[in-house]
Design a protein around this nucleic acid. Structure first.
Lengths: 208, 208
DNA sequence: GTCTATATTTTGATAGAC
DNA sequence: GTCTATCAAAATATAGAC
């Protein structure tokens, strides 16, 4: 959205540093990635890397913030909507998939955070906040009779977004449109795997 | 199943060492856990720990094997069954949940492996094998008309088991029966979240 | 089986020149 | 912005006594 303003000619800007770091964190693991590894990937030395960032944790912090911010922007947008909670829940799932696809590497990193440092604990706290929000929406949808009431709302929310989050394990942006994937996830989650009475517009086979 | 035969009186046996290591690997992360940490948790020194195991990687190797073996035992059991593929797929989901619950810490560790060492690559290869097997079952179930054919079988299998695997993020054995949870997962995955025509036996609200 | 060293490497991070 | 040099701490692992 915001145009990253060009910096002074040479070297790397923060975004490039962050991108390289996050890629390494995801492939090797955060702890297994050294600042030397990050510097090497950028073609600079460790000292130069420390000129750009204050430390390893700052890289993690910036990365998870991008993921969390995206998720909450989507949630805020959905909460502004009118209409049945069931539809809003569908929209939340849909936009979560889109955010995950758009910020794949950041969300991937976020989902692997375990809470051992303050940065990680903060990220976990915001994830729980999102969870609560989703659970509330499930409750409302159950109350209005849109989704089944024979499952605990917290359990339903966790399984639903567990399915969504599992996308980071295999989704690759180069194959298939995120919109189609989002639609598939919503369909599977809400209508289930089982064969249903075909109403007419479900004849398209999709690949991702 | 197999009675762990008692060792010579004193000290720790391999199972105790493995259990302590896996617990730490899951809470702090594999790379962030040092051999000193494992030794300390057992109340012994690093040297003594090295008397029990050949190194850190062996601990990881043994742990992921326990998870993978459990999953494949379940898969083999399901493949021996007769009847429609749709039912076998349901059984595979169900028993996967049960294995996950029974070997929670080992499966948790398995699902976090990224493939940076040979041990991890081997674990990933076996996971892919399981994936292929699940995808095949989805295909068969689609062919016999049991589950919807408007979704790519690989995508369906990944989303289905993505939902199952997400249980490691929140399931805790002390709360609720694994059997009830497995039933909930199957119901949600196959019949979906949406309210359906109530046929009579779906009045029970479950908690996990 | 358990310990006290100790070797060796790698880590995150800083100082200071250009 | 980038480098060389360096530090202090922590890591995996081994040697060898009891």
């Amino acid at each position: 959205m915001d145009t990253p303003r060009r910096r002074g000619r040479p070297g790397h800007d923060l975004d490039a540093v962050l991108a390289a770091a996050v890629r390494l964190f995801n492939t090797r693991g955060y702890d297994a990635t050294s600042m030397f590894d990050v510097a090497e990937a950028l073609g600079i030395t460790k000292s130069t890397l420390y000129h750009h960032v204050s430390g390893k944790e700052q890289l993690l912090s910036m990365a998870v913030d991008r993921a969390v911010d995206g998720l909450f922007e989507a949630a805020a947008h959905v909460q502004d909507l009118q209409g049945p909670a069931t539809v809003r829940l569908q929209k939340l799932v849909e936009s979560s998939v889109l955010v995950l696809a758009e910020r794949l590497e950041f969300v991937t990193l976020l989902l692997r955070v375990r809470g051992n440092t303050q940065v990680e604990q903060h990220a976990l706290a915001r994830r729980r906040e999102f969870d609560t929000l989703a659970t509330e929406l499930v409750k409302q949808a159950q109350a209005e009779g849109g989704i089944r009431a024979d499952v605990d709302p917290a359990t339903a929310a966790r399984l639903l977004f567990g399915m969504v989050n599992s996308l980071v394990e295999w989704y690759r942006p180069e194959r298939g449109h995120p919109e189609a994937l989002a639609a598939t996830v919503v369909r599977l989650a809400f209508d289930g795997l089982r064969t249903i009475a075909v109403t007419g517009d479900q004849a398209t086979q999709e690949e991702h």
